[in-house]
């Protein structure tokens, strides 16, 4: 197990040495987002903006206009919905080289409740022209994605969860990660599970369970939701004939929405199901209880795959 948030903080420190124009902004949550690691190492390049997210985003755009590579961090709920207009005009419309890195995405935030459980951020960011949208799945991939955000131009949004997460990838394997290219984690022929972020690990577990029951599932880690790897999605549809998407996000407008759009326009008929939060707010509780109640764990993936293949 490792915490992707720590991977974020550690990678920022590493990149800070290599790129003197990298700067970091936070809105009074640096201990939670782990930008504090960068703040300690490079205090002159860290800007504490207080509880003022709108100002943080537009300030980041100003810094980027002078050649800086700003990473702006806070919880996913404050990093998107609260500052939508600032992101829309100052980052997306302006094609500013600003990276928003959000933590505490999804319902596994837990006991803080629905006010802090961001399940619309991917949809909100995905609809913005020029915006790249990312959801890394483990600590290793998080580090690599942060590096790719720093070295590729343009406005980008990435979200991770709050909790510790199992390590899926080793360092050598992860070097091949490219923005906009989905990763085939497990090959299979009967069905494809396309997951992002925190749902990739349960998808891998679900594959093992299904395999024992005679179902050979392919697992895709779709860390880049936009631009979507449409070729891979269509290929999976043609080869396995059944697709399930899994994300800790609303079923509307996120990974599942994006893939549904692609399949509807480009594919042969395919059996298809989205797993995510079903257009509702959730509640306080232990993360594992919430994921069980709202249908986002290994057990639910297994059940959904079997239901889908039955039809």
């Amino acid at each position: 197990m490792a915490n992707p948030r720590n991977a974020y903080g550690e990678t920022l420190v590493k990149l800070g040495e290599k790129y003197p124009n990298l700067v970091v902004l936070d809105a009074d949550l640096s201990k939670s987002t782990k930008t504090i690691m960068f703040a300690k190492k490079y205090p002159e390049r860290f800007f504490e903006m207080g509880i003022a997210e709108a100002n943080m985003i537009s300030t980041a755009a100003g810094l980027a206009s002078c050649g800086k590579i700003p990473f702006a961090s806070t919880f996913a709920v404050f990093a998107t919905g609260r500052v939508y207009d600032q992101i829309r005009i100052d980052l997306a419309y302006s094609q500013a080289n600003v990276k928003i890195f959000a933590t505490h995405g999804g319902i596994s935030v837990g006991k803080d409740g629905a006010s802090h459980q961001m399940i619309e951020d991917i949809a909100l960011m995905r609809v913005l022209p020029n915006m790249t949208v990312l959801a890394p799945s483990d600590a290793t991939q998080t580090g690599k994605i942060v590096e790719l955000m720093a070295t590729n131009k343009g406005p980008m949004y990435a979200r991770i969860g709050r909790a510790n997460a199992p390590i899926i990838y080793d360092k050598d394997y992860i070097e091949s990660v490219k923005l906009g290219k989905g990763m085939i984690v497990e090959d299979g022929s009967d069905v494809t599970i396309i997951a992002c972020g925190t749902m990739v690990d349960p998808a891998i577990d679900a594959r093992k369970t299904l395999f024992k029951q005679g179902i050979n599932a392919q697992v895709i880690d779709m860390h880049t939701i936009k631009p979507l790897d449409e070729k891979l999605v269509i290929k999976c549809a043609r080869e396995t004939g059944a697709i399930i998407t899994a994300e800790e996000h609303s079923i509307i407008g996120g990974l599942g929405g994006a893939i549904a759009e692609t399949l509807a326009e480009n594919s042969h008929p395919v059996r298809f199901r989205r797993m995510g939060i079903k257009d509702r707010f959730c509640e306080s509780g232990e993360p594992k209880d919430l994921l069980e109640k709202y249908g986002l764990n290994e057990k639910h993936i297994v059940k959904n795959v079997k239901d889908l293949l039955k039809n």
């Binding site: 709108a54 943080m56 980041a60 755009a61 206009s65 005009i89």
Partner: peptide
């Protein structure tokens, strides 16, 4: 220098420019 039209953003943007200048 900055895309504007939605009011209230410009001073923050200018802050970013000024911070970069100091840095």
């Amino acid at each position: 220098e900055a895309s504007t039209g939605s009011l209230g953003h410009g001073l923050s943007f200018a802050n970013g420019v000024a911070l970069a200048g100091k840095l």
